[in-house]
């Protein structure tokens, strides 16, 4: 008998095209439906805060968010903070995982207070960390 799978919607927001693909691939590798047979993963990725906010759905479960979103062509720039605000407003259940370089420890603390679930340093071990964080989050679903 076929089980009713739970939809897990994951959104990746990273402006760097290369790193965005790397992250998406990480997530796809980790969210293997052979491993998580109860879940039906739906992974989307965006490069800008604007696109993310426009396409944001309130049933988003997990968001990997680069805090320093930068886009050369946009004059009136929305940032990772704006995305975080929208997510907290509209997606009650959404777990936000912040991804950034490690320099700003103070900011990390501030963001944790704002309700982010985890923080990932952009370093070579991102994959392991992304894996660990995702596995943790999926455990609770």
């Amino acid at each position: 008998m076929k089980k009713n799978k739970k939809d897990v919607n994951i959104v990746i927001v990273e402006d760097d095209k290369y790193f965005n693909k790397v992250l998406t691939k990480y997530v796809e590798t980790i969210c293997d439906e052979k491993v998580y047979s109860d879940f039906n993963f739906n992974i989307k990725s965006y490069h800008t805060a604007e696109n993310t906010i426009q396409e944001l759905e309130d049933d988003t479960d997990i968001m990997l968010l680069d805090y320093y979103l930068e886009h050369e062509n946009e004059v009136d720039l929305l940032t990772g903070a704006d995305v975080l605000d929208e997510v907290t407003k509209h997606c009650d259940e959404c777990k936000v995982v912040m991804i950034s370089a490690q320099e700003e420890k103070g900011l990390t603390e501030e963001l944790k207070n704002k309700g982010i679930s985890a923080y990932i340093d952009k370093n070579i071990n991102s994959k392991n960390r992304v894996g660990a964080v995702l596995q943790d989050l999926l455990k609770d679903m």
Partner: peptide
């Protein structure tokens, strides 16, 4: 900001 952004890519490529 651009330098910051580029770090992740080069970090990945070691």
């Amino acid at each position: 900001k651009i330098a910051h952004k580029m770090k992740a890519t080069f970090g990945h490529l070691e």
